[in-house]
């Protein structure tokens, strides 16, 4: 009985479509949550998190299951994980001085942000692929981007580089492409929705 049962379960799992967990990674403020919201709004009708111009708005990873994306004739069931931005330093004074936050709140935010970075790193063990979000108006060779790419490559995780904020006039997705030619780079504006069809096609192609 036990053997039959196991055999049966094995056969079932062969046919069941696996959910693919895709982590949205990148430095703070690259537009990860804006992208997560865009994707989940497009395919489930509901956004998933709060965005802000102040860095480290997302301080806990958030997962949205059953995001079924149809593109290029395929249909894939994704778990989308929006992660806190990864940084090598966190200075609460920035929140106070640049954004006029009260010191106590700024300290709390900074403390939670350090925990968020740790959580984002931990999630790397549980994803099947990564959308690495970069602000295409900024220098792509920042240490977080470079370190993340190195780790994604070492773990052999399929990676799509999302050159976000394409709507800004300083945006240069070509600079990102030149910096990391070994990965597909898709220029988008998560805020305006430009380039999303290309991104969905790429997700189905590289993650599927």
């Amino acid at each position: 009985m036990g053997i039959l049962n196991r055999l049966f379960k094995g056969v079932i799992s062969l046919f069941r479509k696996k959910q693919l967990s895709i982590g949205i990674y990148g430095p703070p403020n690259a537009g990860k949550t804006t992208l997560a919201n865009r994707i989940t709004r497009d395919w489930t009708g509901k956004p998933m998190g709060k965005t802000s111009e102040i860095p480290h708005e997302t301080r806990r990873a958030k997962e949205r299951k059953e995001v079924i994306i149809k593109a290029a004739g395929s249909k894939i069931n994704f778990n989308i994980i929006d992660t806190p931005g990864i940084a090598t330093k966190i200075d609460f004074h920035n929140f106070v001085e640049e954004f006029g936050m009260k010191e106590e709140k700024a300290r709390e935010r900074a403390k939670q942000a350090t925990e968020g970075v740790i959580e984002a790193i931990k999630w790397l063990d549980n994803v099947d692929g990564v959308l690495l979000v970069m602000d295409s108006a900024l220098d792509p060779f920042n240490q977080v981007n470079v370190t993340l790419i190195g780790n994604l490559e070492a773990r052999k995780l399929p990676t799509i580089i999302v050159a976000n904020k394409f709507d800004l006039k300083e945006a240069s997705p070509a600079t990102i492409k030149e910096a990391f030619p070994q990965h597909p780079t898709i220029p988008i504006s998560a805020l305006k929705g430009y380039g999303m069809d290309n991104l969905y096609k790429a997700m189905v192609k590289y993650f599927g």
Binding site: A87, T88, I90, V117, I118, I121, T147, I149, G150
Partner: peptide, 13 residues
């Protein structure tokens, strides 16, 4: 290495 650097970031946090 990239892995060591990520570990450095993690411990730093």
């Amino acid at each position: 290495t990239a892995a060591e650097e990520l570990e450095l970031i993690r411990v730093t946090m």
